[in-house]
Design a protein around this nucleic acid. Sequence first.
DNA 1: ATGAAAGCGCTAACAA
DNA 2: TTGTTAGCGCTTTCAT
Lengths: 339, 339
Amino acid sequence: MVTIKDVARVAKVSPSTVSRVISDHKSISESTKERVRLAMQELGYHPNYIARSLIKCSSHALGLILSRSTESAFSNPFFSEILRGIGKVAQKHQYTLALATAENYKDEAKQGLQMVMERRVDGLILLAPRVNDDLIRELSRNNYPFVVVGRVNGMQHHYAVNNDNIQAAYTAVRHLLNLGHRRIAFLNGPSEYTFCQDRYQGYCMALQEFGVAVDPRYVRNLENHHEDDYRMGKELLKQKPRPTAFFLTDDLMAIGVYRAVKEENLRIPQDVAVVGFNDDAFANLLDPPLTTVQIPIYEMGKTAAEMMIAVLHGKEVTPPQKILSSELIIRESCGAKAR
Amino acid sequence: MVTIKDVARVAKVSPSTVSRVISDHKSISESTKERVRLAMQELGYHPNYIARSLIKCSSHALGLILSRSTESAFSNPFFSEILRGIGKVAQKHQYTLALATAENYKDEAKQGLQMVMERRVDGLILLAPRVNDDLIRELSRNNYPFVVVGRVNGMQHHYAVNNDNIQAAYTAVRHLLNLGHRRIAFLNGPSEYTFCQDRYQGYCMALQEFGVAVDPRYVRNLENHHEDDYRMGKELLKQKPRPTAFFLTDDLMAIGVYRAVKEENLRIPQDVAVVGFNDDAFANLLDPPLTTVQIPIYEMGKTAAEMMIAVLHGKEVTPPQKILSSELIIRESCGAKAR
DNA sequence: ATGAAAGCGCTAACAA
DNA sequence: TTGTTAGCGCTTTCAT
């Protein structure tokens, strides 16, 4: 392994001079810089990131946890899109992204905590906060730096970026109500996630505004697999009276629901209207194209990473909680546009 | 920060003893172990991963590059599934996963090289090898450890895990030929990837076997977005004579193609048969359910990570190149089953 | 403008 | 069984 000492020897300077050349220190003469750089090139030297981390007391890495449940609840396009945003910013600031995978929530919390405790990462970006989140509680108890993508229940002092889930769901459901729908089914994700809770709240708000009671028979929390979307869609369509519209917490659900509707010999949008969430790349290609809520996933990822890095650099971050807004993209899965 | 010295002081032993307790060294008496562990708990001590890495000359991390193009070429379900496999194994062996994101290939190569050169990672797992891959060439030239998921062109000495792309494509196309199709369109990914090359080869082999000439008008290499799948599907359907079947290099393409077929007032499978690739979770929920090639993505990820870690531990890995087999899942998008 | 020396937190010979 | 010591590769005072 080529070290700073080797370079020093070849360039006939001291190790500290080499170190100063690496960080482009002002008080080193151009000629020495040249000489040292030449030696580095000649020897194929590259600074050892670990040695630097040790002395700087910083791994220069951001932690991320991909849980089996996060993955399914959030659906894949969401995950890879937010990752792209986070990665972009991390790259810009020369931060490494450390990814831990976990099979369940307990594991997720353990892995996350371990990453910060062992100093593998300087801070954590959390992707799917729960209504009662152990990991978040532990992190803030120990003052480990973290940024949440989503809303945290009952905590003031933390950093977070989120989209306006309540408002978004409200707008989507209002759209259906405006079109005359009154029996609106809601296929939501697991209720332990705050974003699912928020979307449910938006759903309720809209119904309430139109004087429609929330009928629990029309609301489902899906745990996992896309087969369930299909099954639940079928089940809801068999209810009497059957819902005339579906609000989905994820565009991916539309594939199963579309199929369920067709199998019941019903048509979209004539018999059943559908609104999705996320505006995945394929939403426009479904038949009929899916009306859905577009949220700035990539932007959220970028913002979360920017916040995290700013916090780690001791900068003041205001406001500590940022909400990015979403937009309802109206296509053809609900029929005519509302006036 | 709580260090090993603090623990030593509290437990009234030397730092080396504490170190030995951490690694559960045999020659430490139970009573001392107890005492030290108590002190660790009391002080909230956690071993500093970076300091350990420095002395061990190993970051205990595996590098992974998520390129914008990898992402789209491979499609998302593929990526997150292979990540799950890799993560599972990494976690088992206490390896960190370091993820770099890149916008294009040049960047990808640069990032990958940097990760190993700076010792941020001990080795690299490469996800979408190209026909002429600079990164792979550089890595092997410098003897940096890496494992490839896919096939590498013209290289003997490297580790790789792959699925049988040629065979898989051959089987899929043969299935269509057996059903009587002779004009079979192929929507492939960018030809710079070896896996696309291989699938093309399998496609040609099957046609050849049936004495059907490969007609370039029916073969397309798609670069990127799902909108293209739809557009290309449309375009191919307008050809005279029009293809009676589609072979897709990715299930996600089916969404756009299904739409294109419907818009031309054609039916699947009566007028046009479709075979996909990957067996994504939603393939079974399309209308009609998609016949597709199922490849063991999760297994491939696990295998690649196991290989990488074995190599890093200096173990002999035989065979250095592993091929996992795939299976054609016959559903309803091609009509009656072949005899 | 440059060098000498100490030390980041840990491990691993070598002693005892 | 345990302690002493040196050092991993780098940065950073403090000298010069």
